[in-house]
Design a protein around this nucleic acid. Sequence first.
RNA 1: AGUCGCGUAGCUCAGUUGGUUAGAGCGCUACCUUGACAUGGUAGAGGUCACCAGUUCGAAUCUGGUCGUGACUACCA
Length: 953
Amino acid sequence: MDKTYQPHEIEKSWYKTWEEKGYFAPQGGDDAFSIMIPPPNVTGSLHMGHGFNNAIMDCMTRYNRMKGKNTLWQPGTDHAGIATQMVVERQLAAQGIDRKELGREKFLEKVWDWKEESGGNITNQIRRLGSSVDWSRERFTMDPGMSDAVQEVFIRLHKEDLIYRGKRLVNWDPKLNTAISDLEVENKDKKGHMWHFRYPLADGLTTKDGLSYIVVATTRPETMLGDTGVAVNPEDPRYKDLIGKFIELPLVGRRIPIVGDEHADMEKGTGCVKITPAHDFNDYEVGKRNKLPMINILTFNGDIRATAEVFNTNGEESNDYPTDLPSEFIGMERFAARKAIVAKFDEIGLLDEVKDHDLTVPYGDRGGVVIEPMLTDQWYVRVEALAKPAVEAVENGDIQFVPKSYENMYFAWMRDLNDWCISRQLWWGHRIPAWYDDEGKVYVGANESEVRSQNNLSDDINLRQDNDVLDTWFSSALWTFSTLGWPEKTKELETFHSTDVLVTGFDIIFFWVARMIMMTLKFTGEVPFKTVYVHGLVRDQEGQKMSKSKGNVLDPLDIIDGISLDDLVAKRTGGLMQPQMAAKIEKQTRKHYPEGIASYGTDALRFTFLSLASTGRDVKFDMSRLEGYRNFCNKLWNATRFVMESIGQTDDKPLTQIEIDDINNGHVELSLADQWIESRLQVAQKEVIDALENYRFDIAAQAIYDFVWNEYCAWYLELSKPVLWDENSTDAQKRAARRTLVSVLESILRMSHPMMPYITEEIWQSIAPIAGKAGDTIMLAPYPQFDESKVNAQSDTDIEWLKGVITGIRNIRAEMGIGPGKPVKCLFRNGSEDDQRRLQANDTFLKAMAKLEEITWLNDGDAAPLSATALVGKMEVLVPMAGNIDVAAELNRLTRAFDKNEKELGRVAGKLNNPKFVDKAPQEVLEKEKAKLADFESTSKKLSEQIEAIKAL
RNA sequence: AGUCGCGUAGCUCAGUUGGUUAGAGCGCUACCUUGACAUGGUAGAGGUCACCAGUUCGAAUCUGGUCGUGACUACCA
């Protein structure tokens, strides 16, 4: 074995072996366990969030598999409509090709090509993370089977009138030219302006104040081209007389009414609100209430149209107004038009005022440009009826969120839902199964011929299919059951649905979790999962969300394999949407990773993720923690080297079967340490199992770390040395130590395997046969169970005593400046029978671990030399001060201990002197405090005696 | 503005139904290459649990408020 842990060597080949041997496929008992991977973007690449997510899911999966359950972790990817289409469009643009020139068919071929080319990337990454998914069942949302499911769902929902089509105001992304749902809109706080415009009253009217105009304010001046009214509050004494009158819309010359609507707030702004129903969500509602026409003035790219589109309040084309727009603005980009229109108002003396204004601006989360409310035909899901059972499933506990507090978030969102806009003006995705005849009548069905036959449409009637595709989340919402074969009634569906647990970040509870619950209940009558484990979001060391545009993303593989600083900088600054950020990103990267990133290996990364998986909302990823866990792997590795060495196994000379049988079956005489470590192992196992069952991976990781490092390595390994190295030890004693070393290590490996699959498999392969365990892989070995019969409380207190003596002497050594290599004498005074028994049983351990040349037991009245002293319970451990020892230092040490003890003594005494406490506190607590008091008093007494003795010199 | 969450050691975080001498890792200080491991060992230092008030015999933990901070929702004519 190498002297240090080398993750690369270990992690190189195991995954391939596991996969090839089919260990990931479901096998095991009748009791099933299943979990669905949240499908990542097929052409994307993994980020730290995926790494975190995968570490948790794989830990659960491996744990349940080792428990003997019929375990399925279902993998797959989604088609990520917008994101993928964007990437391919950009690639084409680089070659000077436009998507529309290419045509739909050809373009889709290109996307499929790209999927073939890059789709392996993400699955490779998942493999590198060690995720034990069943690759034989890998699914993709655009697979034929899943597409059938999507179509089936659409048609059925439509039949039940839960899907409808309508002309409505939607969030429009002018860059990507598609509608997006309100969840895909990101609101950002911006500094902007509020422009006040004067709108002249028509027909020579004046206001009460004698003005010939009213003033409206807007943050989006360009929309005024589409104004079809001005609203004032019906109660507003300033303006209510004007209701029913008209104004002359500047620049356009449109005559538009003043309407009374409560939307206009008398306290706010000027009290007059311009109404642009085709370009503002509030105005849309006001327009509907007041029967105002809607005028669309923008193209899908967000430019001013050549001619406006005029609709009546029902969304039908109308001639309520002419379609002319002022020629000087035509074709202008919306923000340029804003400037030009403000300038024009200023020029003609109608710009009343400009104020600075803080506002929230909606951005598309994909395209990154300002969203424009746009009047378009879209498909919607009516969510109200679907939401009700989805809420109930959580209320009645069929689905449980962990941590529970996320249920509030879920309910809050489910309470006020908007209908879900599911159509996207893209080519990449599931095309909407709807056909239109020449009159625009809609027919929904699986395909054209079905539509014709179901609706008795003859072949000479023209039909064309809807151009749009469905939101990717529509197909993702069917993920748990469509991956298992629905709408067929498959065996998999029966066995693995509902799934046991969904592991996801809170940021997609609405996007995905809620929609899955709604759709799955609707179509299977089952919940998609029984538990939703919600983890935090991985952030960088400054607590910032990781994003490509901020340049603070990390690829988990770069942590596993390592990356040079220059490569990391290049990776982060390449392909930026905003190239001007490059310098800042480079500076930041060089600051945070002056040496680049070392290679830490998969196990250390996974263990780090799991140790960070507490109940918090954020996970700040801390490289120093990662380093600590890499060191932990090294610790485990070297402990193994020690065990191998102790049993006489070397790389080129393995143990013979006879030698192995001897270790496992020969006569043994268990030492206190042997019994103790077995006992502690049980306690650790219980802690780990309890933590895993409660989704507290941080606690499980901590328990493993603590047991391996601070008990097995720090104490047990050290305690085994005196036995193994002492010529006077019997064979039975040595055999006991060897057997214990091996069996505890083997248990540690199985206990840790779900968290650190590679190193545990690597070591297990050589340790298991020696421990007498059969099996080809640790993956399928049984998970260790808590065995109460091996818990030994006596050994625990005895070892604590031993540790106390050793630590006490080491402390004296350190404070007195006695080097660890120098043997000292030691005397025990004022010890009990128990102390004496322990001393006899542990004489060898003590001498070896505290480097003692002689131990003397003092009986009452025996004289003691002047000594430095440590207390172990009531017993005093004396290290004689052989003349050259620092008296002042010892006095100082004792005084510090005394002061500390006095403080505690005072605190406890105060409590016990309080009659109310003595009166009301439970007996149990009272006894505990009394015992503490006695201890502190005895310690104080001893320490002051010792201080006096030193002072007397 | 509303809702929810958070504030514990220099840093990153645990702290289960109120009773611990408030813990861990990293970092820090001193010492140590001793035959698993310097990716190590030994011994230490370091906290008014944001602040104020309350409930209680007893509060990091429960309640109310203040301050700071984050997320989400809404508004922003």
